[in-house]
Design a protein around this nucleic acid. Structure first.
Length: 104
DNA sequence: TCCATGACCGACT
DNA sequence: AAGTCGGCCATGG
């Protein structure tokens, strides 16, 4: 419960604030969290055991493509969840970051 | 305590 | 255009 939780909370709080129908990239979250490395964000989410409070399916890569290694049934599961929220994928299987990227 | 790894991103060649 | 490398934070063995 020391600094590890501190960083964890940063990411958790930000991710939890992602509005429905929007997506965020690792880099954006890292920047918002004040972290200089996206790895911390990755670690926080990947190590997270509570996906209910952390919509990791809304987190994608900077290219607009879905993250790999999704441990919930594969990218198709993630895509289905995003589509259910109104996110549309192009023919390349990517998300239109210009429209769906969560920017405040 | 040191070494290696991680659901990534950006810049450079 | 595509491949390579560094970044710099935390975890696990």
């Amino acid at each position: 419960m020391d600094k590890k939780t501190n960083t964890f909370i940063q990411v958790q709080k930000i991710v939890a604030q992602i509005p429905k129908g929007k997506v965020a990239t690792y880099g954006s979250i890292a920047q918002r969290a004040g972290i200089k490395d996206v790895r911390i964000v990755v670690w926080s989410i990947h190590k997270n055991k509570d996906p209910l409070n952390l919509p990791c399916h809304r987190i994608i890569k900077a290219d607009g493509s879905l993250a790999s290694g999704y441990g919930m049934g594969g990218p198709e599961e993630q895509r289905a969840r995003l589509e259910a929220e109104g996110i549309v994928f192009d023919l390349k299987g990517k998300v239109d970051l210009k429209k769906y990227l969560w920017s405040e």
